[in-house]
C-alpha cells in the first residue's frame, strides 16, 4: 500500500499533534488543507482519518500508519546527521524527502545499522519498530551504543542520549562529547574507554547512552 508523499506529511503532523501535543482534533486550516484536497480524500478513503466540522482525527489504523511515517522521518534524520554528516536546517528538509523512500524493510535495515536509536537528533522519541523490540543485530552496523562495542573497536562519538542533565554535564566535564574519537579498552566489570589522552571508566547505563559512529 503506497500513499502519496503529501498524505504522509499530514499523517506525520497529526501524530505529533495527537501524541506529543495532546490535541486529538486538528483543524483543516492548521494542516493548510481543504476538504477537496486529494490527500485528504485519499486518507479518508483509506480510513486513516475521520473528518467532522473541519476537524481531523486519526483513526486506530491511521495512528499505526502515522507512527510508521514519523518513525521513518526521524530515522532519516538520524541517518543524515550521524552518518552523512548533514548540518543545520538541511536536516529537516532532506529528511522530509528521504522518509518517503524508506519503505518495505529499508527503514528496518537503517534502524539496525544505526543501533536502534531511541531519539532523533532534536531529542524527540523515535517510535520503536519490530526490529527494535526483537533487538535484531546484523553484521554491519554503523552506529552502536558503546556498550555493544568489542574491546579494541574504535569510532567517533555520534551523540549522547540522556535526559538526565546532570549526567550529561558530568560526561561533558570529562570531555566526552560528540565528534571525539573513542576506543573501547575493556567491557567487564566496567566499561573502560579512551578519549584523546584520557581513560574513563563508566557503568553499563552510561555506556548505553554513548552512541558511537564506528570506523574500520
Amino acid at each position: 500500500m503506497k500513499i502519496s508523499d503529501k498524505a504522509e506529511e499530514i499523517l506525520e503532523t497529526l501524530w505529533i499533534r495527537t501524541f506529543e501535543e495532546n490535541d486529538v482534533f486538528t483543524g483543516l486550516d492548521f494542516l493548510k488543507a481543504t476538504k477537496e484536497d486529494a490527500q485528504i480524500e485519499e486518507l479518508l478513503k483509506l480510513g486513516f482519518i475521520t473528518l467532522s466540522n473541519n476537524q481531523v482525527k486519526l483513526t486506530e489504523t491511521g495512528k499505526k500508519e502515522a507512527e510508521n511515517v514519523l518513525r521513518r522521518h526521524r530515522l532519516a534524520e538520524r541517518l543524515l546527521v550521524d552518518v552523512l554528516d548533514v548540518k543545520g536546517k538541511l536536516i529537516h528538509d532532506a529528511a522530509c524527502k528521504f522518509e518517503h523512500l524508506l519503505h518495505r524493510g529499508i527503514d528496518e535495515n537503517i534502524c539496525i545499522l544505526l543501533g536502534h536509536p531511541k531519539f532523533c537528533p532534536h531529542g524527540n522519541p523515535i517510535p520503536p519498530g519490530k526490529c527494535c523490540l526483537d533487538d535484531k543485530e546484523s553484521a554491519i552496523k554503523v552506529v552502536s551504543p558503546l556498550s555493544d562495542l568489542n574491546p579494541g573497536q574504535r569510532g567517533k562519538i555520534a551523540y549522547i542520549h540522556t535526559r538526565d542533565d546532570k549526567k550529561l554535564q558530568k560526561l561533558m566535564a570529562l570531555g566526552v562529547l560528540p565528534g571525539m574519537s573513542i576506543s573501547l579498552i575493556q567491557r567487564f566489570p566496567s566499561y573502560v574507554f579512551q578519549i584523546g589522552q584520557t581513560q574513563i571508566a563508566v557503568d553499563k547505563e552510561i555506556a548505553d547512552d554513548i552512541h558511537v559512529l564506528l570506523t574500520r
Binding site: K167, K170, L171, L174, S190, V192, T198, Q199, I200, A201, V202, D203, E205, I206
Partner: peptide, 9 residues
C-alpha cells in the same frame, strides 16, 4: 547511583 570515573595513568 551511576558510575563514571577518570582512570589516571
Amino acid at each position: 547511583p551511576s558510575f563514571y570515573m577518570e582512570i589516571p595513568p
